[in-house]
Amino acid sequence: MSTMNLFVMASMPILKVLLITAIGSFLALDRVNILGENARKHLNKVVFFVFGPALVASNLAKAVTFETFLTLWFMPINIFITYLIGSITWVDTCQSYKSSKAFQRPNNRIMFCSFSDCGVLIGSLGKLPIIIVPAMCNEKGSPFGAVDVCHSYAMAYASLSMALNGIFIWSYTYNIIRISSKEIVEEVDQTSPNREPLLPSQNSQTPLSSKLQQFLTTFPRKINFKAFLAPSAIGVIIGFMIGMISPLRNLLIGNDAPLHVVQDSAYMLGDAAIPAITLILGANLLPGLKGSQIQVRTIICIAVVRYILLPLLGLVIVRGAVHVGILHVDPLFQFILLLQYALPPAMSIRTMTQVFGSGQSEYSVILLWTYGLAAVSLTLWSTFFLWLVVS
């Protein structure tokens, strides 16, 4: 396929996302107020507890067998690497910023480290693969083969990506923000007029290696493992069980299956997840228009690492794994793995900032800029990734 055809194929799903996102933003306007704050919370709960698990379980059950299961082992490792890179960037960025004079102001400490740590944002992955990748299968001249087969596997791969990312977000990112928020509040209390200021050794002079070692030592003790029992994680388990256990598969999957109505009902619920997620995305971006005191350097830092450095590292990791033979050469699977390195941050982090009551407006601005830039960067990276995996 020509580069122009690949560019058109990559841009069409992005344009669809932008249109539905715009509708979500419109519905969230004060004068419309269909997707106001309370409505978003309720709809998000329905997606989290009903639509999302149904989407994950139904698509994995249909596409995954014991043989295909053995080929998916690299995806959790791939997602883990993105979080690992983000964590390293988080520690390094905070360390360099804490040595600056701007950080010494309490408001800046809260603004930068309690919610918008670059690592938290860089490591997290948005849910766009579940929207973008299946849509590419429906485009004319798709390089991923027959539409039905492509769509089935695209939904399975993207559903697994969404579920695994959800586990990482609510077990890792959530606890990072919780711990960071608590520490920043304590630090601000110590530097208030009624407290003695922190010593330099406690503040800006701590070596990066010591901070990383302290983080790796204390974090596992503070982590909340309940996230591993999140609805999407349970959906993954159910989907794998049905797909890999032949009696269950024969009972539920296929038009001739005795209980195919259960699978069909799960598909119907799962189909509602994609438009609901996209509408919520648009509604959550709207508060970013109100602005905040977030520094431009923070947004630039996130954008550069998220949309330039991380995709390049992902390219080396994924193609290197293919080259040495530890990853199969399925173009669709490779494309999703590569795409994971070029995604904007997860929208769920805004919910987490609401839980801890800080950084909501600032993170909304970051979301607005990162998702706005993603419309361009995702199109360009998707075009390049398509050319790479099909050439």
Rank of each mutant, 00 (worst) to 15 (best):
A375M: 10
P129T: 03
G119N: 02
L310K: 07
P53Y: 07
G357N: 06
Y157T: 01
Y157K: 02
L208K: 13
L121D: 09
W90L: 10
E362W: 00
N224A: 06
S204M: 03
R195F: 13
V376C: 06
Y341E: 03
L259Q: 08
M9H: 05
S204D: 12
D92K: 05
L337W: 01
I253H: 06
S377E: 05
F49W: 12
N78A: 15
E139Y: 09
W170L: 08
T370S: 15
F66W: 15
A342T: 05
G126M: 00
L269Y: 08
M111F: 15
P134W: 02
C137H: 08
M12E: 13
V324L: 05
L252C: 02
S361K: 08
G145T: 03
M162P: 00
R221H: 15
W170T: 08
I336L: 15
M4Y: 10
A54S: 10
F385S: 02
L259K: 07
S358N: 09
I300Y: 12
S159L: 09
A283L: 04
D271G: 03
I176V: 14
G86L: 04
S348D: 09
Q202V: 06
L309Q: 11
P275I: 11
L248Q: 04
L84C: 08
V262I: 14
G288F: 00
H323N: 09
L380T: 04
G325K: 01
T65S: 13
T217Q: 12
F228D: 13
S209M: 02
G320C: 10
N33G: 00
Q354Y: 13
F356K: 08
L18K: 07
F51S: 04
I302Y: 01
N250R: 08
Q213N: 11
T65G: 11
C94E: 08
N138E: 09
F333L: 14
T278I: 04
L248A: 14
D117K: 03
P207S: 00
S246C: 10
G243Y: 13
L252G: 05
T71K: 11
S171Q: 05
L199M: 05
L216C: 11
D189W: 12
I223N: 07
Q340W: 01
N255S: 15
P13G: 04
F7H: 07
T217R: 12
F240Q: 04
N38H: 07
L337Y: 02
S348Y: 08
L29F: 02
K41D: 05
